[in-house]
Amino acid sequence: MLIIENLHARVEGKEILKGLSLTVNAGEVHAIMGPNGAGKSTLGNVLSGRDGYEVTAGTVSYNGIDLLALEPEARAAAGVFLAFQYPVEIPGVNNTYFLRAALNAQRKQRGEKELDSMAFLKLVREKLKVMQISDELLHRAVNEGFSGGEKKRNEIFQMAVLEPQLAILDETDSGLDIDALKQVAQGVNTLRSPGRAFLMITHYQRLLDYVVPDFVHVLADGRIVESGDKSLALRLEEQGYAGVRHGAVA
């Protein structure tokens, strides 16, 4: 589904990704771990098309197409979803209105029929139930005045409605207490399916106690320096990232 080869990217003239390669297949959950400043969030931002990230070398192929050539909205329509580390507050835009606009914009780009408000509300109610989220969230402006946990749950809820093929979770666990973390993790687990892949970017392994990954990669200094299964995350937790660059983790 996603093949990243030798990706180099710069932010404000500073090279952050230095030859990152990674292959993700449908149905897999990959965890990307690494110390601060390793380039974890840059990877998420480059994949979702944020301005200010300059790709200087390498390719990203998503279902056979050149992902980097697409505008952010086209990537979304093609099934790429980024759950933000810091979801943006948008005062004055109602959450339901926003989600419907997003879903219909994606459907339109894919040449599908747009959902009318009845059909959309039905879909939203189903997803709320599955995600165990209160519908009070729907009536508020997007993320405005939401607690940290509510914002992250709203990201997962959006993901549930938009049904992406590739979900990138950028430090979705950061700033959450244990109850909120469990809820978010449960939401992610509910959305796991053979057709959908997850890229979970995280600093700590505690999210991985609840969302068990198929693969764990260590990102350090702009490259994947080590890959393994979930036991790698546990070792990192014990030994820290200090040893990564020296190969001590292995």
């Binding site: 944020r50 301005d51 505008e71 005062p91 004055g92 926003f98 989600l99 997003a102 959006q158």
Partner: peptide
């Protein structure tokens, strides 16, 4: 810019995202 990118990352095209944010700005 952050708000614009947030909307675009959800599939809303740039022109529509601008219109949505501008309308929200006034109607507040």
């Amino acid at each position: 810019e952050r708000s614009l990118f947030y909307l675009r990352s959800r599939g809303i095209p740039l022109a529509e995202a601008r219109a949505l944010l501008t309308a929200a700005f006034c109607r507040a």
